[in-house]
Design a protein around this nucleic acid. Structure first.
Lengths: 129, 129
DNA sequence: CTGGTCCTTCCAGTGCAGTGGAAGGTCAAC
DNA sequence: GTTGACCTTCCACTGCACTGGAAGGACCAG
């Protein structure tokens, strides 16, 4: 399988595949006589896993962590559980932070509607922020 | 006011102040005989505004947009209202996206606890992601 | 044999908001 | 006069996940 075919099959680009190889996410494949990358069929399932990991909001470094465990011949179940657990905690905090920010911004925006701009102090940049 | 004093007073660093100047967020101040930056007192309120804008989750480019309006001698009220409104919309979508992601990740994590790892297919990377 | 498409490597840039460090100038105190 | 703190400019780097482009080789159809 040439790089362009794999890119098409996995819904990504040749640029990205070379980048993944350089980043240690996919192993360097064999080469054809002409020096072209020649991927085995299982490269596709590896790319699907990477895509699913990304869809779950994991970084490529985290995905690579799981792949590294798997490549050492181990079952990554515990690792995956801990990773998802930590990710969930981070997401919860991120959502809470964003919620607080949202309320702050909503208050600021409403203040623009309700506070008379004539009461702005001359030396300030903006009365509302 | 020298740059170190302003940095201390505004709770930032000299590096950041030079960066803000280069980025067009604060005007280039006068210089002392020795070539040191010499800030006027109102630089502090400008930096406070920048900090409040950042606390509201605005980018420096957005903050600079407000400052540009103000520097042209106009009241930025309408601009600020529109900016905050758009920001609020973006925040709401971001929160919704994050919520959906959170639910997905929670489902994945729980599947690690409930699905028997012995049922993993040998060719796959991970049964859970 | 030529044209077109695919592939190769390598270097550099994107956006965001700074941060690090080198090489050197200024100023006040001792 | 010298130490030390502060300042100057300039260039490069951080993290993240790519993306763009140049220069050149491989391969296939007509």
């Amino acid at each position: 399988m040439l790089i362009g075919e794999l890119a098409q099959a996995s819904g990504t680009t040749t640029k990205t595949l070379r980048y993944y190889e350089q980043a240690g996410l996919i192993p360097a494949p064999g080469r054809t006589a002409g020096g072209y990358r020649d991927y085995p069929p299982e490269a596709l399932s590896r790319l699907d896993f990477i895509r699913r990991g990304q869809a779950a909001g994991l970084t490529l470094a985290q995905v690579r962590g799981v792949l590294d465990v798997r490549d050492r011949g181990l079952a990554p179940c515990e690792h995956v559980h801990d990773l998802l657990d930590a990710h969930l905690t981070a997401l919860d905090r991120q959502i809470a932070d964003l919620h607080a920010l949202r309320d702050t911004v909503a208050g600021l925006r409403d203040s623009v509607d309700t506070i008379d701009p004539a009461t702005c102090a001359p030396g300030t940049i903006c009365r509302y922020i």
